[in-house]
């Protein structure tokens, strides 16, 4: 009699567990969110899955760099050969933008670092390890939060990179052409001063100088536009890729997402390349002295006359 009751209780418990499991499975949802999901908290600081991916990227780059450093030989091995080919090609590409090997060598380290950081972040976002993650209570029931989300699929990362690119370019400009010339690109006091020095010689300067000064002010807005365009372009492309992959996998889980995976691998390279080339362009513009160009142009005009 007691055994029968015990069996019934066990059966009821098993039934209950089964119902709960079914409910649990049906309620877990994984939505691709516009922002990186938090996976942990360190006091006030929120550790998101994108930040976690970036740390993995940093780890990969550190391991690769140390592996390369320890295996550096005059006759290169496979890893060294790969790096040499990449560096040689990237430096040649840099030369096409800067038109100067000396300038390329100065800009190259930061550009190639950005390239590798973005590339590995992009690729880690599409690595099919979406099964690893947390299940947490969300606003609409249980939610699955993957540990890996491409670092560049989080606007915070792309903003950090864009700010670094634009601020870095201006600092590079200060070191290349001087603080005064860099400052005059934005607040063109020199142009205003020329009203008094060149007025007798060129009366039109009274119109040209304020316009030049105003263009300088627009340049400041342009710098913020650069940050916005760099960050949102990279974020948009990478995030769109992740949404595309998730949608394809949701429609038909097998085989169909594979071509899109290859497409995203390609998009990852292209986006990293675009960001790096734009970074080189901004650095090159910052390092070029507009006054020198103008003076050269004027001298050229005079010599032709």
């Amino acid at each position: 009699m007691v055994q029968k009751e015990a069996k019934e209780i066990i059966l009821e418990i098993e039934k209950d567990i089964k119902i709960k499991e079914e409910k649990f499975e049906s309620e877990i949802a994984h939505e691709v969110t516009l922002f990186a999901e938090p996976v942990n908290h360190l006091g006030d600081f929120t550790i998101t899955n994108a930040l976690l991916t970036s740390w993995v990227v940093v780890g990969i780059i550190i391991i690769l760099s140390i592996a390369l450093r320890t295996r550096l030989k005059e006759v290169p091995g496979k890893l060294q050969n790969l790096f040499e080919v990449i560096i040689d090609g990237a430096l040649s590409l840099c030369d096409q933008v800067t038109n100067s090997r000396a300038l390329s060598i100065r800009i190259f380290p930061i550009a190639i670092s950005a390239f590798f950081f973005i590339l590995i972040n992009n690729w880690l976002g599409i690595v099919p390890l979406g099964g690893f993650g947390l299940i947490e209570d969300g606003a609409h029931g249980l939610a699955f939060i993957p540990f890996l989300r491409g670092g560049t699929a989080d606007i915070n990362t792309t903003i950090a990179l864009a700010v670094m690119a634009v601020v870095g370019a201006n600092i590079f400009g200060v070191f290349s052409i001087g603080l005064w010339k860099t400052f005059n690109k934005y607040v063109n006091l020199k142009a205003l001063g020329e009203i008094f020095t060149k007025f007798k010689k060129e009366p039109t300067i009274i119109i040209v100088a304020p316009i030049t000064f105003f263009v300088g002010l627009i340049e400041i807005v342009g710098e913020f536009a650069k940050i916005a365009s760099l960050s949102f372009r990279l974020f948009g492309n990478v995030f769109a890729g992740e949404v595309l992959l998730a949608s394809m996998a949701a429609l038909i889980a097998y085989a169909v997402p594979i071509p899109f995976l290859f497409l995203e691998i390609l998009v990852g390279v292209i986006q990293a390349l675009i960001f790096s080339i734009l970074l080189v362009v901004y650095f090159t513009i910052s390092a070029s002295d507009h006054d020198e160009h103008n003076e050269e142009h004027e001298e050229h005009k005079v010599s032709h006359a």
């Binding site: 990186a36 930040l51 990227v57 780059i61 670092s113 989080d154």
Partner: peptide
């Protein structure tokens, strides 16, 4: 902004490590 700074630091580490050990 905390995550932005953290990502900036991440990039800084990548830059320094790549520059010193590889480039």
């Amino acid at each position: 902004w905390k995550i932005i700074i953290a990502q900036g630091v991440n990039f800084g580490i990548v830059f320094v490590v790549l520059y010193i050990y590889a480039l």
